[in-house]
Write a protein that binds this DNA or RNA. Structure first.
Lengths: 97, 97
DNA sequence: TTTGACTTGTCAATATTTGTCTAATGTAAG
DNA sequence: CTTACATTAGACAAATATTGACAAGTCAAA
């Protein structure tokens, strides 16, 4: 499930309109629509605004948002698993210092 | 070890000058210097060119380069481990389909 | 002090991202 | 069928970010 699908689900559960949420975020309805459908990536501030408007845990949602960005980067790649292994190694070494 | 540190190491092993490698890549020496020092990110084509000039396995080097990009994104984050877990879950679900 | 290797700062050119507007599509009610 | 409203698509200008080059700088060895 992508970030967009996720927030759409929450918005619909709460029976809110795109228009309502977008207005609280100070963005155009069309933009929020695109974010939910994944044709546009939310900016960090927008992800935060969404957490607020949809009353979600901000850190959790931001993690989800960041994960989405990374998945998006990796999507086209061939050896995703291998790349993730390298990332983990690098991260581990970083945190040791 | 970052991508930049890595290619610098190889270049020095091979006793090549920045100037020589940069020229074969058709870029300015200064730019290659920045890439090696990590103040600039290589573009994909540049990473490929480096593989060629330094006679490294292209896919391997590109993996390393991509991993570096991801680490760079994550560096500032708080719950890196958690984010990586989410990424892996998402990737696993993607590959199942 | 000259030379050569490398680094740094700056800047214009380019490229990408962003947000909005308008028009289109979908849909449920009357 | 019309109307009304929600959502989506496309196109665009404006804002941002990236890129590569140049010139000037540091540094070390000769």
């Amino acid at each position: 499930m992508t970030f967009g699908e996720y927030i759409r689900e929450i918005r619909e559960e709460k029976q809110l309109l795109l228009r309502e949420v977008a207005s609280q975020m100070n963005i155009d309805t069309a933009l929020l629509s695109k974010i939910e459908r994944g044709t546009r990536m939310a900016r960090k501030e927008q992800a935060e605004a969404l957490a607020k408007v949809l009353k979600q845990n901000k850190n959790e949602l931001l993690q989800f948002w960041m994960a989405d960005k990374i998945v998006f980067m990796l999507k086209e790649e061939k050896n995703i698993t291998e790349i993730l292994k390298i990332v983990e190694q690098k991260i581990n070494r970083l945190s040791k210092k």
